[in-house]
Design a protein around this nucleic acid. Structure first.
Lengths: 113, 113
DNA sequence: AAGATATGTGACCATTTAGTCACATATGCG
DNA sequence: CGCATATGTGACTAAATGGTCACATATCTT
């Protein structure tokens, strides 16, 4: 697969969509309930929900005339495990890099490869 | 501050930029070295670097006619600590949600708030 | 000084994105 | 039935994005 997390990254890039996910952490919500929380139009929220659904971050279940949106945090976990986690080893090193950076001491490439 | 991580999220949304960061994990690189690794034009890479720099993910030090790009992983750590971490408690629950979702048993809202 | 190398800038283009309004469908209820 | 409610769709706009090419500047080397 061609990096299925691509849609997830893009979905998470928008602050409104992250807020939607934050709301869904407390439990499933109908589309109407979600719209009531945002200043933008109902359709704008629906578009965001469609993007979140395509990314697999939101699961939808229709019940009569309502649409229940469920949070699925699994893709977020994958983002962490497949990418962010790889940077844990550099966190401490980054502070050192910053220090050398401001010191401006030349010729300290220190590349690993 | 008005959520300074906004630029970081947007910067991370692009796969080319994430690849640049992956390269920089092994150590600092000049702009030219980075360009050689990508199919897109040199200027496209420079634009990506500018976005990464604005987000604070890349620190730049000029040395004579070269520009050394350093990885700064601190914003990535903040993304984790201020957002992703909050979802750890839901990872297990998401599997349960998924199970209920496919079962399609109505009326199990189970909201916390 | 001259040329090669490394990076910075300006102008432009195509596509995507986030948003709008208006209208359609579908369901619960009196 | 008829109406209110909840969600789905179509058409459109403005701005941001990712990309290009051409040109400018600055520095190292001969």
């Amino acid at each position: 697969m061609r990096e299925a997390l691509e849609d997830v990254w893009r979905a998470l890039a928008d602050p409104t969509r992250r807020r939607i996910l934050d709301l869904l952490r407390a439990g499933p919500r109908t589309t109407g309930e979600l719209c009531a929380r945002f200043a933008v139009s109902r359709f704008a929220v629906m578009k965001h929900l469609a993007i979140l659904e395509r990314a697999g971050l939101v699961l939808v279940r229709r019940e009569s005339r309502q649409r229940w949106n469920y949070l699925n945090a699994v893709p977020i976990r994958q983002i962490y495990e497949r990418w962010i986690r790889d940077y844990e080893g550099v966190w401490a090193g980054s502070l050192l890099t910053l220090k050398r950076h401001v010191e401006g001491s030349g010729r300290e490439r220190g590349r690993t490869s």
